[in-house]
């Protein structure tokens, strides 16, 4: 595709312009403050760290911890992202101890209690492989083979937020996967080779899953 144009913007100029603009303004990403009741306990944060690390460990590329996933999950829960702000059906008695007055779930309370219960003791004191085994059990129960659960497990939302936190972080989106702000062309058929990575910014695919 020819990208040079008369007095229109050229791709190269555009990229330079965007980069310069960023440099000049030095636009930082500001993180919104949390409401008091959205601040997790120290132990909940340690549980979330451990769980995020199990879901997306460091491999050849950074994992969830190095990319700040737990902090994103805390922010996301405080603002109800990924459906976590929607009230839970009152009939879900197993969840009742973890509900706020408005019917929404305290996801981190639920996670902490569910892991400790499955561990039969303090989840954080178990050996790492034991922790993986326990989380695998919860994960398998949340996504059984066949049709999805009528009432989704809270783990499905938490896992979704961990994945979002990771694959929208710089390392997750642009190092683990491929991110191209300006592809510049469209090739309708390219051989897929072993080791090729998926795009993190194929927006339609991201949306439809």
């Amino acid at each position: 595709m020819d990208t040079g144009v008369g007095n229109g913007l050229k791709r190269r100029d555009f990229l330079q312009g965007a980069a310069l603009l960023g440099l000049v303004l030095g636009l930082p990403v500001t993180t919104p403050a949390l409401a008091a009741d959205a601040i997790p306990t120290g132990r909940q944060l340690r549980v979330l760290d451990r769980v995020s690390d199990i879901v997306i460990p460091q491999t050849g590329t950074p994992g969830a911890l190095a990319t700040g996933v737990p902090a994103f999950v805390v922010l996301a829960l405080a603002h109800g992202l990924g459906g976590t702000g929607v009230p839970v059906a009152a009939s879900e008695s197993a969840l009742r101890p973890f509900l706020r007055a408005d019917g929404t779930l305290r996801h981190l309370d639920w996670l902490e209690a569910t892991l400790d219960q499955a561990a039969g003791s303090d989840f954080l004191r178990l050996a790492p492989l034991e922790q993986v085994r326990i989380l695998t059990g919860i994960d398998n129960a949340a996504f059984p083979p066949g049709p999805p659960l009528a009432v989704p497990s809270p783990w499905a939302s938490l896992k979704g937020l961990i994945l979002t936190g990771y694959y929208t972080s710089q390392a997750g989106a642009a190092q683990e996967l491929r991110y191209e702000l300006v592809p510049g062309r469209w090739d309708p058929d390219v051989p897929l080779k072993a080791g090729d990575s998926a795009w993190s910014n194929d927006w339609t695919a991201v949306e439809f899953g």
Binding site: V132, A142, L163, S197, A198, A205
Partner: peptide, 26 residues
């Protein structure tokens, strides 16, 4: 479309294996 990393939200799987699976277009 070729499924993206968001497909990981709908299926069981954790750890290095999940990361490897989501590395490829779905």
């Amino acid at each position: 479309l070729q499924s993206a990393w968001t497909r990981g939200k709908r299926a069981a799987g954790l750890g290095a294996e999940l990361k490897q699976e989501l590395h490829r277009p779905g």
